[in-house]
Design a protein around this nucleic acid. Structure first.
Lengths: 223, 223
DNA sequence: TTACTGGCAACTGTCAACAAACCATCACGG
DNA sequence: CCGTGATGGTTTGTTGACAGTTGCCAGTAA
């Protein structure tokens, strides 16, 4: 039995609302560009508008919501250009984590990654995106965690959440699974060899390949 | 004459307080770990506690303040471990920007960078940290801007602000100026050659050299 | 029909007050 | 003398209400 009172004492109402609202957003409850009514949200969570406002401000700061003065909060609408930019940032963070990890990876971490590789191979053989997807997520998250830099890890997680807002196309088309996992394997191989430069390169290109697989075109920011 | 009403209409009180509070924080007005009284801040800015709370939440989200439930907001205290981690993230973002820039840099951008290099050389010759420091800042900022990814740029800026909280030691000791600028030059050389891999490597190592110059030890996160 | 104006409804921005939590002080008992 | 528990003041968390702004819509004139 989880004691909810204990949870309430540790976290304030604002943070609870924030967590709940974030879940709603990521679950696709609201359409992109849709306006969120503070009053309605407050009623939905049975709190006053204060905590709702604070939660919205926090989520806007994280990039999940747009804030327009005197107009309200809107679901962030991510276009191709933004998604492409986010992918580039993500590639940089991922490559950086892999680079750090190359010099300090342990045998246990290596075997954990190799285990994930095998399971992803199985899923790819079966063309099962439903199996592959969570494993892929865990693979990336493990790498970030192993890098031993919590800030890097959390930054990456926020980026992933933000990218979830952009879901216009399928994440991977069937043929991509094997290709994607082959890239994973090259990263792990470089890590095992403790070749920081090669691992960095493979990691960076892996994310950029993912961007290409999503058919996101690089609209170079004009301004 | 700047019309202040126009400014007030565009930005809400919360955002004004936030901006002002950020300036205070970065100017070193408060000691690390010091507690900020919401009521006092509200009185100082002649507003109610609401906007102050929202501003504090936003700044806490950005990593400048610590938020403890039922206790209040505290100046973020950055220890060596955190600073080291931030430097690693910064290295990743910087290297990533340089990598992106390598394939699209224009002659105008190159000559702008080279101009900064020359001026930094002058400052280094004169051992003038006061001249060198802003130029160094502008050099890094220009690179991030030229990369053409606004998200990368703003993320980097926030990281720099956060690192400002850690000011226990001098930024560069005299001998470091020439060394630092030599690294800058290698980055620009690689960019001119459009050698993405080399530029990435130089950029990453430049930031890590900066970390070493600050004598920040790498306390590998235990957990 | 189209463009403009005035009023209306809804919503956000801000404030002041209430309730709960925390910290320090001090009295009391072992 | 030290540990324990009560007590008061201070500060945060939350609420409800008020004021200002925005966008919509009807109505009128060209």
């Amino acid at each position: 039995m989880t004691n909810e009172l204990e949870f309430l004492k540790a976290h304030s109402l604002s943070s609870l609302v924030r967590r709940e609202l974030e879940k709603l957003i990521l679950s696709g409850e609201f359409a992109p560009g849709e306006r969120l009514n503070e009053y309605v949200l407050a009623a939905r969570f049975s709190v006053s508008r204060g905590p709702v406002r604070e939660a919205c401000r926090a989520l806007a700061e994280k990039g999940l919501l747009d804030l327009v003065p005197n107009r309200g909060v809107f679901m962030r609408k991510i276009d191709e250009g933004h998604a492409a930019a986010l992918y580039d940032v993500r590639a940089g963070l991922f490559a950086s984590a892999v680079r750090l990890l190359a010099s300090r990876i342990t045998p246990e971490q290596l075997s954990a990654l190799e285990d994930l590789l095998r399971r992803m191979d199985d899923a790819a053989d079966r063309q099962s995106l439903d199996e592959y997807y969570p494993l892929n997520l865990e693979f990336h998250d493990s790498l970030m965690r192993f890098a031993g830099n919590s800030r890097l890890h959390s930054l990456y997680g926020e980026l992933i959440k933000e990218l979830h807002l952009f879901r216009e196309r399928a994440l991977l088309h069937d043929g991509g699974l094997a290709v994607s996992n082959a890239e994973h394997r090259r990263i792990v191989d470089a890590l095992r060899a403790r070749d920081a430069a090669a691992a960095t390169e493979e990691a960076f290109n892996h994310v950029l390949s993912g961007k290409a697989r999503m058919a996101i075109h690089d609209t170079h920011e004009s301004k």
